[in-house]
Write a protein that binds this DNA or RNA. Sequence first.
DNA 1: AAACCTTATCGTATATTTACGATAAGCGAT
DNA 2: ATCGCTTATCGTAAATATACGATAAGGTTT
Lengths: 105, 105
Amino acid sequence: MAISKTEKFTKTENKISDWAKALSHPARIKILKILAQKNLCMCGDIVDLMPLAQATVSQHLKELKRVGFIKGEIEGPKICYCLDYSVLNEAKNKINEFLNSIIIQ
Amino acid sequence: MAISKTEKFTKTENKISDWAKALSHPARIKILKILAQKNLCMCGDIVDLMPLAQATVSQHLKELKRVGFIKGEIEGPKICYCLDYSVLNEAKNKINEFLNSIIIQ
DNA sequence: AAACCTTATCGTATATTTACGATAAGCGAT
DNA sequence: ATCGCTTATCGTAAATATACGATAAGGTTT
């Protein structure tokens, strides 16, 4: 974009769109699914299951971390990723609330 | 991006992320809100309520039309936009279903 | 410490997104 | 037909996003 117009919109509008942005790539949807199935997951295992290079997966993980959907903890030489259910729940509720508010009159 | 990797992901992963992409800008969240309040809305009225130039608003409307969240009908010289509740409902349900599937074990 | 494994970051290329002014395209009224 | 109004599209600039190989950074093991 040219210049960010974040300040022209409300906090809620920015929050909803920011969560949506984190969900706006199929790779990130797939990563969230993988983490949901395994509960805890070594970074390397995620990379193995993804059709993308390690560096690219790392970038997607960073974006998911940015909004707080996942957390990573150092486990020796590896990193153990897991979902942050409280943030995911908040996002789920607020997105749902928003969509309901525009659908139901 | 370099090369699109859409074919490497499932139809559902692509669908969810595509809906999320449409919601990934505060301007588009605001446009949906405006349309929800007014039910029907002339394009010009939307432009007047947005902190962006007419050409930019038109681009955002195009993205919302692309995924089917809104429809536009020609009304003489103007264009009347409205929400497509069936598509919005489908998106709401599928996004909610997805988030529930990763939150609830 | 050296070799090894794991993952983040850097550098880079390309595509896409966002934003805007200017213009075109379509309709209504004069 | 021309003028005025409305909105999409074009052209363009700048920012972001996506992808990958290469490298760095940090821990383990030998």
